[in-house]
């Protein structure tokens, strides 16, 4: 939960520097620090850490090129920033007692709105009203068209919600499950020898879930980035599906 560290109130709004803010800053510092320091030597033959930075670069670049074509590459900094920020925030949240920035619905929703906003602004700026073709799939018989357009509009409107809720729910549910099982371990182990024996099962579950959570932390960042690429594809090529 969010605790205030440095209270800042502006015109009745609570803009305090909280632990959430602290971990956003930590995410920023960690990700930027890693990427800057590992590439500082600019070695032609990369070391391990430089390879990690280069791999993430090429990973996102190929993802975006496949998802949105070469015209979509102008969004590369945006997709890369989203992926690295979410990934770093998710992984930071795996450290005990650390706050998970992405387990807050407002954060994921803001990021999702940023993506959809970019799609809308760029789509209308680049294609004008032709951007509305995104709601009209080609090759649909005229009778079905109103229905299909209605479905397309609803699916488009639900994108920011599904995008944000997916990430938020995954991170939050994972952490709650971990906490519950870890709580079992603590509770059971206070019940004497039998309790300690019985605590082994939830302990194993906790370890397994921790592994799963690392996977989920990466996977959700990946999913967010992939979906961003797909939505950007609509902005770059409206009516192309």
């Amino acid at each position: 939960m969010v605790n205030t560290i440095v209270p800042i109130h502006v015109g009745g709004l609570d803009l305090s520097f909280t632990n959430a803010s602290l971990f956003m800053v930590a995410t920023l510092a960690l990700a930027v620090g890693f990427l800057v320091l590992t590439t500082a030597s600019r070695a032609v033959v990369p070391g391990r850490l430089q390879s990690v930075s280069e791999l993430s670069y090429e990973f996102i670049a190929s993802m975006l090129r496949e998802g949105a074509g070469s015209h979509g590459m102008k969004f590369f900094p945006m997709v890369f920033s989203l992926f690295m920020f979410i990934l770093t925030a998710n992984l930071l949240g795996m450290v005990p007692y650390f706050f998970t920035v992405t387990s807050q619905i407002i954060v994921t929703f803001a990021l999702a709105l940023f993506v959809i906003g970019t799609v809308l602004v760029y789509g209308f700026y680049k294609h004008g009203l032709h951007f509305l073709n995104v709601f009209v799939p080609s090759g649909v018989p005229g009778v079905l068209l109103p229905l299909v357009i209605a479905i397309e509009v609803i699916s488009f409107l639900s994108r920011p919600i599904s995008l944000s809720v997916r990430l938020f729910a995954n991170m939050l549910a994972g952490h709650i499950t971990l906490k519950v099982f870890a709580g079992f371990v603590a509770t059971l182990s206070t019940l004497g020898a039998l309790g300690i024996g019985g605590a082994i099962l939830p302990l194993i579950m906790t370890v397994a879930l921790t592994g799963l959570e690392f996977l989920v932390a990466f996977l959700q960042a990946y999913v967010f980035a992939v979906l961003t690429c797909m939505y950007l594809n609509d902005a770059v090529h409206p009516g192309g599906h």
Binding site: L15, A20, S21, M24, F85, Q104, A110
Partner: peptide, 14 residues
Amino acid sequence: STFASQLLWLAITF
């Protein structure tokens, strides 16, 4: 109550 603060700091850091 935490939304404003989170949004502000997210905007700054991101």
